[in-house]
Every structure is written in C-alpha cells, then in structure tokens.
Design a protein around this nucleic acid. Structure first.
Lengths: 266, 266
DNA sequence: CGTCAAATTGATCGACTTCAATGCTCGTGG
DNA sequence: CCACGAGCATTGAAGTCGATCAATTTGACG
C-alpha cells in the first residue's frame, strides 16, 4: 500500500534545485531560497547547519496536518506531496481555499489568533518540515534572512489570494478552470517537473469548491476545453495541447465562452 | 473643505485605545498593539520614542496611495480615512480586493516581488504612517516585538482573504451583502465607533466588485434587506435594525433568500 | 439650472445550479 | 476470479438567480 499511482523519482535531488525560473519572477525563487536558508537536506530529512530546529513529519494520504480550530503549534513547509486547505461551513460545505505543493508554507493564517482557521489534509503521501512557533518567533535575532524570506512567502500567499478573489468574479467556468490549470502547471514547473502533462491530485469536487462552481460545471468546462482542443483529459491526467489558446481563454473576463472555429462536432 | 461628512472626534485619544474587544478575538487588538509599538502619537503625527523612522503622509480623497505595478518603497498603516485596494483587468474592470480603515496595513502584498500588485486609493481625506522597506527589513534586530506584530497583521489579512474567498462561493447576493455589512460594522466597532449606524465610504460599484456581483444586484439586495426589516438604508447611511436576523441571513450558505413572514407589502 | 455620476427599478436572457441517471475505477469479500 | 459496492466522474433536463440592457430618479457640483 505504497503510492497508489505512478509517482516517480521523489527522493532524488529534491532541494538542491538550480536557480529555477526567475523569468516570470514568481514565488519559486523565494521558495528555493527559503529551503536553502532552512539548511535542510532532503536526502535524510535532517537539518544540519540550520540555525533553527527543524523536524520532519510524515502525513499519509487523506490524513490531516492540522484541524480547523486546533491550537497552532508550528508552521509547516511542504517537503513532498500535496495538501489542500479548506474551511467547513455550518452546513458542512467544504470551502477549499488553496492547494500547496513542495516548498509552500502552511499555517501562516494561524499566527494572529493562535488557532488554525483552516484545515489542511494531505492529498497523497506527504511530508513537511515543522518549524515550531517558538522557533519562528526567535528567528528575528537568529536568522534575519530567514525571517525576511518568511515575510515574502506570506506576501506571495496574499497575492495568490488576490488572484483567487479576482478569479471568482465575472469569469466563466471555462476561464476559471483554464486559470487553475495554468496555475497548476506553473506550480509543477517551479518544482522542476513537466508543465505540459499534469496529474491532478485533487478531485473534481475539490477543484469546484476552489473555483467557486459545482463539480458538474467543472466537468462540463473540461469537456468544453477538450472540444476547443486546448487540452486533452483522461480522468485526472491532463495534457495541455494549446497553451496560447488556453491562456487566451483564461484571460477572458466577463461571461460567454467562445470555442474557436468549430461549430458543432456531434 | 475639511471632511465632507460628519466624522466626529478624530484626533482625540486615537492611539491609546482601551483593550478594545478581545471578545471575538479579532484583529483589533493586534492593530492597537501595532500602533502602540510604533510609538506614534496621533496628536501631532510624529513618532517620538519609536525605534524606527516613521513619517506621515496625507492622501486626498480619490488620490492613489500607490499605483498598480509601481515600485514598492514602503508599507503603510492607515492613520485616518479609508482606502480601497483593487487590481485592473486587461479590459479595464476594477476588481476590488479589500477595504482598509484605521489601523490596517497596506502594501504587504508587494514584499515578494518588490512591485505593488494592487492599487490603493483613498475614499476620503486620509493619512497613513509610512514605514520604508529598509526600515521594515531592519526591524528584526531593532524591534522584534513590532516584527511579530507585523507578522500577525499579515496573518490577519490572510484570514480575511479566506473569508472573502468563502463569501464568493455559493452564497446569495443578500448573504454576501449581509456579511459585508457585518464585517464593516465590526471594523467600525474596533475603531471605537458605533456599529449600528454605518456610513459607507465606497460606492455601490465598489461593493459590487468586492462581493463579486453587479451594482444593480447590490441595489436589489439592499432593498430586499430593507423589506426584511434587517436594515434601513438611506443612500450611503445604513442602520442595522435586526442584527440577529442579519447574521442569520449572512450565515445562510447556498442559494435562496427567504424574507421573514411578510408576503407582499405594496 | 444643467450636467454628470450614483443609485434604483424593471424586463429579458443566459449560465450555472440542481436533481437525476449512467459509466467508470478500484478495493473488498464471497 | 469475478461480483459487488462505493466514490468519482460524466452527461442530460429543467429551474432560477444574477447579468445585461435600458429607463428613471436622485443628489452633488460648477
């Protein structure tokens, strides 16, 4: 009962990334620097040379990293695997507010109240670096550079939330899904993986909750994107066929989805 | 040409707030502590005793504090007035991502890239404390307590974004508006003002953009809330008549708005 | 007083939701 | 080994809320 699907080469050269992208200047360089500053080594999971005490914690697929409302004890940096974070409404509806892959930080939102306002569960076999709050708060004197990096990581999260807020306003289902796929592809790329072939780790329901639509609409949007020849979809395996078309689709604000020059293909 | 509307007692005991709420444990205590730590004094706007250099900047109604894409030079703490922050789409659509009143911090989202991803404009005569980035980055050694407070302020913003994301999913227009009003009322309360009588500083269009609906729908939602006797509305002056009813309305996820036992009152 | 933007209200239309049925994959146990 | 069930995913049909277009009113300001 190891990994349920083909996840190859996970332990090889995980942290010692090359300078990564730096082209579009996204968060990846922050993350790379963050992990460098942590001084962690993915080979054994130990933190030698790190100015702060870091431990590693494994989280099985489907298991929670922390529960909603739980006391905050630490923040976490994803070493491997994927997480979803969500809040539960009174009526039991799960509102997904984000997905986190390798190098991303979980638990920032708990700093202000000391309680986790969200719940984080692993979507597959995962592991995280654990930075206790006491260690975090003593970072300022011990490792100002790391402190700065954490500030920037938080700032990145603010930006991504602003993106999400914009996505949820006046955008068609196809555009939302297109943006999600592009964002996901970029996340894969910043991890050094292929950005054309994607394997979605989350269910349609999770995607739907994240995008603010129903899972049926997500499904229909997928078929529309396939009909437009932007992507090919086989269950959770996605291949991006026409990235420019997909970007154009994702860029389109306002309603109405226009497929390119094909009228009806029954 | 002072204040265009009845904003009373602004200079009196602005910073030395009492312990404020602490009941629902919201951000207000953070903010109060933040301003205490800044060592600023609202009477003269100077910062004596502050471990870091703080200046004050006035921003006229309708003027921008910073533009979208501008180089980030500082972060700002609102001393007086109100701001809206928004991003402009390619087609010119203004996506409002937040409103900021006294004690709230603007510019955090620019830390990661060094450029402001959003634009902030004052909704009325306003002023801000300016904390330059160089000062911010030297805070760790000079004033670790302030550094921690800024971390918490950022964390609060993350929480509020998560709220907004949840609001934009599967919630009726009336519920969205109800949540907005409650949030706004709480913001007023944390500033020591009345939470029953509100004066909205922003247009219906701004509210609509923030809530992810059109301004016509905002207008209709207002009339529905009035018909339900939850609030009374006179242009931008709002009075909350039935806070429990409003909360119940705001809590309702999923569609369908039910007005309490009144069928037709023509 | 005239102009302009904000705000309200109405009518129509469409995209998404909702309810419902079917396929599909995978894990469990007969 | 195959049947069975459970969750995920896809597709269809009908209803609805909000978007859109449009007209009117109100208020602010020169």
């Amino acid at each position: 009962m190891r990994d349920s699907m083909q996840v190859q080469d996970r332990q090889a050269h995980a942290v010692c990334l090359p300078p990564v992208v730096t082209s579009n200047g996204h968060t990846s360089d922050n993350m790379a620097r963050l992990m460098q500053l942590l001084g962690v080594d993915a080979h054994d999971g130990r933190a030698h040379g790190s100015p702060v005490p870091i431990t590693v914690q494994r989280v099985g697929a489907g298991e929670p990293l922390y529960q909603e409302g739980a006391q905050a004890r630490a923040i976490f940096i994803v070493q491997a695997g994927t997480f979803k974070t969500f809040r539960s409404s009174d009526d039991g509806y799960e509102q997904v507010v984000g997905f986190a892959g390798r190098g991303e930080v979980l638990g920032f939102d708990a700093l202000s109240l000391g309680l986790h306002p969200t719940c984080a569960v692993a979507l597959d076999e995962s592991s995280v670096y654990v930075l206790s709050l006491t260690a975090l708060y003593s970072l300022a004197e011990r490792a100002p550079a790391l402190d700065r990096s954490l500030l920037m990581a938080m700032s990145s999260q603010l930006q991504r939330f602003a993106d999400l807020v914009g996505l949820k306003s006046a955008v068609s289902a196809e555009a939302r899904l297109g943006r999600f796929l592009l964002q996901y592809a970029q996340g894969m790329m910043s991890q050094g993986q292929s950005s054309r072939r994607l394997y979605l780790r989350m269910t349609r329901r999770d995607i739907a909750s994240y995008l603010g639509i129903t899972h049926e609409t997500v499904s229909r949007a997928f078929t529309n994107l396939v009909r437009a020849r932007y992507v090919s979809v086989a269950r959770r395996e996605i291949e991006i066929l026409d990235i420019d078309g997909l970007k154009a689709c994702a860029r389109s604000t306002r309603r109405r989805f226009e497929a390119p020059g094909l009228t009806a293909s029954h």
